[in-house]
Design a protein around this nucleic acid. Structure first.
Lengths: 164, 164
DNA sequence: ATAATTGCAAACAATTTGCAAACTG
DNA sequence: CAGTTTGCAAATTGTTTGCAATTAT
C-alpha cells in the first residue's frame, strides 16, 4: 500500500472521529433546549458536519434527496434556523441571492478564508486588528465593537487545476 | 449668530458643493456610456450622493415617493444596476434579506465602518493586512487575491444618544 | 428620429407560514 | 400521551423580465 493511500485512510478516520464527537455535542445541545432529534435533522447534521464547503439550503436539499428522499425544503430552512440560533452553524456573507451556512468549527470569534473556485472554507482566529481599530476609532470618533474579515482566493487543490 | 450655527451652515454648503461635483462626475460617466439622464435618475442620484447611510432599493423607493411620486421600484432596481456597473456605487454586505447600496466616495480599494444604530457609513482605505495575508497563505497554501473587512460600532452622534 | 427608458403586470426566486398528519421522548 | 416536527400548499418578500407607451438626445 502506497504512502499516500495510508495518509488518505488516516485522514478519513480522523474526520469520522471528529464528526462523531461534533455530532454528539450538537445533539446534546438540541436536547438541552427541548428540540427533538428526528431522522431528518440527523441526516442534515451528518452532511453539515462533514462538509468542508459552505452550503445553501437548496444545496443541502439536493444532496439529501439520495440519502433521505422526500425531505422537505421547509424542514431544512427550519433546522438551519435552529442551528444558527444555537450557534452551531454560522451564516456566510455571500454575494449570491441565497444564504449560505457552515458548521462553526471554531467556537470563538473567527474569520473565513474562502476558495472562490470550489467554495472550501478555512477558519482562522488570529486577526490582530487592534491597532487599525484604534486608529480608526481615534480618527472617526466611532466606538467600534466588532469586525468582519474575509479573505478570498484559491485553495491549494484548485491552484493545481489550471482553469484560470 | 452662535458659533455652532455658523458651523452647521458651513457644513451644509460644503456638502452641497461636494454633492454637485460628484453629481457632475456621475452624469458625465452615464452620458459617456450612452445612458440617458432622466428625471428619475437625477432624483435617485441626488438622494444617493447626499445620503450618509447605505440604502436598500425599497428605502430609496419610499424616500422618493414625495419628491418624485410615481417612480417605479423597477426603475430603481435598473438604475442601481447601472450605477453598480459603472462603479459609482458599491453593494454592502448586509445581513438582511435585501441588498444595500452606497455611493462610492473612495474610488480605490476600501472598506467600511458602519454605525449599527443609524446606519451611517464611513470609508477607509488603510487596511494593512499584508502580513496577516502572508501568514495565512503560508499556513494554508491558499493563493489569496482579495479581502473584505468591515467594522461595526456606534458613530459619535449615536454614542450621545444614550439608548443602550 | 431613434434608441433608451419608463412603469405596468406578470414571472421568478428565496423564504415563511398555516395546518393536519406523523413522530419523538 | 403531549408537545414537536414534518411536508404539503399557499402566502410573502425581493428581484427580474416582456412589452407598449413615453422621453432624452
Amino acid at each position: 500500500m502506497s504512502h499516500t493511500a495510508i495518509m488518505l485512510i488516516k485522514n478519513h478516520f480522523r474526520l469520522v472521529i471528529e464528526m462523531e464527537s461534533v455530532m454528539k455535542e450538537i445533539t446534546a445541545k438540541l436536547r438541552q433546549r427541548g428540540y427533538k432529534l428526528t431522522p431528518q435533522r440527523r441526516t442534515m447534521l451528518k452532511l453539515i458536519t462533514t462538509s468542508q464547503k459552505h452550503l445553501t439550503p437548496a444545496a443541502i436539499y439536493e444532496r439529501l434527496q439520495q440519502e433521505h428522499p422526500g425531505i422537505g425544503l421547509v424542514t431544512i430552512y427550519r433546522t438551519l434556523g435552529i442551528l444558527a440560533e444555537l450557534g452551531v452553524i454560522c451564516e456566510i456573507n455571500t454575494e449570491s441571492s441565497s444564504r449560505s451556512y457552515l458548521i462553526r468549527r471554531v467556537p470563538e470569534h473567527h474569520h473565513h478564508l474562502i476558495c472562490s473556485a470550489c467554495g472550501a472554507v478555512t477558519d482562522f482566529t488570529t486577526c490582530d486588528l487592534k491597532r487599525l481599530e484604534q486608529r480608526l476609532s481615534r480618527k472617526t470618533g466611532f466606538k467600534i465593537d466588532d469586525h468582519f474579515l474575509k479573505f478570498t482566493g484559491r485553495c491549494q487543490k484548485c491552484q493545481k487545476t489550471a482553469l484560470a
